[in-house]
Amino acid sequence: MPPETPSHATDRLDDDDYPAYTMGRAAEMIGATPGFLRAIGEARLITPLRSEGGHRRYSRYQLRIAARARELVDAGTPIEAACRIVILEDQLEEALRLNEELRGRSARSGGSAER
């Protein structure tokens, strides 16, 4: 594997999806335990990538999702329900983003954004 150029390595630092964090560091960052990260992985809330050695690696995006699940669990929500809530929140956010994007396109093309 050729060495990375400095600009390519810097690009990874800005990439929300780059799996930069080990399980231990990820757990520390969100104030949880590695067991919590394993549990939300088993619930399929997040799927960490694996290093060549088989170790879990987490992205910043995954850590934001895990932190939200941790907030819900800390408030007394069962982990399975917390995972479902986070998934639904994420789906709603994406649907709202797409809706806004489509409204913008419609307005730019002269069409009606309302039905």
Rank of each mutant, 00 (worst) to 15 (best):
L88H: 12
T10G: 00
T22Q: 15
R97L: 13
D15N: 12
L88N: 15
E89V: 02
P3T: 12
D15C: 09
P34S: 07
G35S: 13
Y58P: 03
T47N: 12
V73H: 00
A26K: 00
I30W: 01
E94W: 04
R25E: 13
Y21I: 06
V86G: 04
I87G: 05
I79Y: 02
Y58T: 01
G53Y: 15
R44M: 09
L63P: 01
M29I: 10
I65Y: 05
A82D: 04
H55A: 12
A9W: 14
R50D: 07
I65L: 15
P2G: 09
G31L: 07
D16M: 11
A113Y: 14
E101W: 13
L13V: 10
S7Y: 14
H55Q: 15
G24H: 06
R105N: 12
L13K: 14
R44C: 06
G110E: 11
V86A: 03
F36A: 04
R108E: 14
R108K: 15
S109L: 15
R64S: 01
D16L: 13
A27D: 03
V86E: 00
S106D: 11
P2H: 13
G54H: 07
G31H: 10
I85F: 08
L49M: 09
E28K: 15
D90K: 04
G53H: 11
G31K: 08
R84P: 02
Y61F: 08
N99Y: 11
G41Q: 00
R64T: 01
I87S: 02
D15F: 08
F36Y: 04
T77H: 06
E52Y: 14
F36E: 05
R97G: 04
I40Q: 00
P34G: 09
G24E: 12
R105S: 13
G54V: 02
D90C: 03
A75V: 00
M1N: 14
I46H: 02
E114V: 05
G31N: 08
T22P: 10
S59R: 01
E100L: 05
A95G: 07
A113E: 14
R56G: 03
A81Q: 08
T10F: 14
E71G: 01
E100D: 11
M23T: 07
A69G: 02
G24D: 14
F36P: 03
Y58N: 04
A113K: 13
L98C: 08
L92I: 03
G54T: 04
P6L: 10
G104Y: 06
R56H: 10
V86L: 06
Y61K: 00
D14I: 11
Y58H: 05
T33W: 08
E89R: 10
A20V: 11
E94V: 01
E89N: 09
S109T: 15
R70G: 02
M29P: 02
L92H: 04
L92R: 05
A43K: 06
V86K: 04
Y18T: 02
E89W: 13
F36Q: 00
A113T: 06
G35C: 13
E80A: 10
A9C: 09
V73M: 06
D90V: 03
L45I: 10
A107E: 15
E52D: 13
I46Q: 05
R57N: 05
M29G: 08
G76F: 04
S7T: 12
R57E: 05
H55G: 09
A75K: 02
R50H: 09
